[in-house]
C-alpha cells in the first residue's frame, strides 16, 4: 500500500505493507537514527514526534501515520550544527553507547516545545519511558534541564 505523510518537513509518499511498523519504514527510507528496541513501547529507543508529540514508532503501524507529521532525530540537529539539547547531552556527558540517546533527545524536544521551562519532576516523567542499558539515567535529566535553561526565550 502507498502512504502519504510529512516527514521532517517534507511531503513523502512511501510504500509499506499493512503489517509494517513506522520504525521499519523510516529506517528503510534512510532515517536510521530511529532505533529498534523492545518493540512494545517500553524502552523509548524508537521515539519520534507524531504531530508534535512523542510517539513510540515501534508500535505505530506505518499506515496509521498516513496523513500525519513525523519528526525524527535527523531533523533535530546535525553533527555540524547540533541542537541545544544535543549540545547539552554532550556537555553533561549524558551519552554512553548512544543507542538510547536519539529517543531521549526526541522526548526532550517534545517536552520543551510544549513547556519551555520544565521542572525536574516533569523532565523525569518525560524521560521515564526511556531505558538506558548503560544505566545513565541521571545525567540526561541534568542535560534536559540545562538545555531548557539555555533555550529560554528562543521560542
Amino acid at each position: 500500500m502507498k502512504i502519504e505523510l510529512r516527514v521532517n518537513d517534507r511531503d513523502v509518499s512511501w510504500d509499506c505493507e499493512p503489517h509494517e511498523f513506522l520504525t521499519e519504514v523510516l529506517r528503510r527510507n534512510g532515517l536510521t537514527g530511529t532505533k529498534r528496541g523492545c518493540e512494545s513501547g517500553d524502552c523509548g529507543a524508537c521515539a519520534v514526534m507524531l504531530d508534535g508529540r512523542e510517539a513510540p514508532s515501534c508500535i505505530v503501524l506505518a499506515a496509521q501515520a498516513a496523513g500525519h507529521e513525523i519528526t525524527t532525530i535527523e531533523s533535530i540537529g546535525s553533527f555540524e550544527a547540533p541542537h541545544a539539547i544535543q549540545e547539552a547531552f554532550v556537555d553533561r556527558t549524558a551519552i554512553q553507547c548512544g543507542y538510547c540517546t536519539p529517543g531521549m533527545v526526541i522526548a526532550a524536544k517534545a517536552l520543551i516545545d510544549r513547556n519551555p521551562a520544565p521542572s525536574e519532576r516533569e523532565v523525569r516523567r518525560h524521560l521515564a519511558g526511556h531505558v538506558c542499558r548503560c544505566t545513565g539515567h541521571v545525567k540526561p535529566v541534568a542535560a534536559v534541564l540545562e538545555a531548557a535553561r539555555g533555550m529560554e526565550g528562543e521560542s
Binding site: G41, D42, R53, A55, A128, G129
Partner: peptide, 9 residues
C-alpha cells in the same frame, strides 16, 4: 499509565 509516549497514543 505507562510512559508519556504511550499516554500520547
Amino acid at each position: 499509565f505507562a510512559n508519556v509516549a504511550i499516554q500520547n497514543r
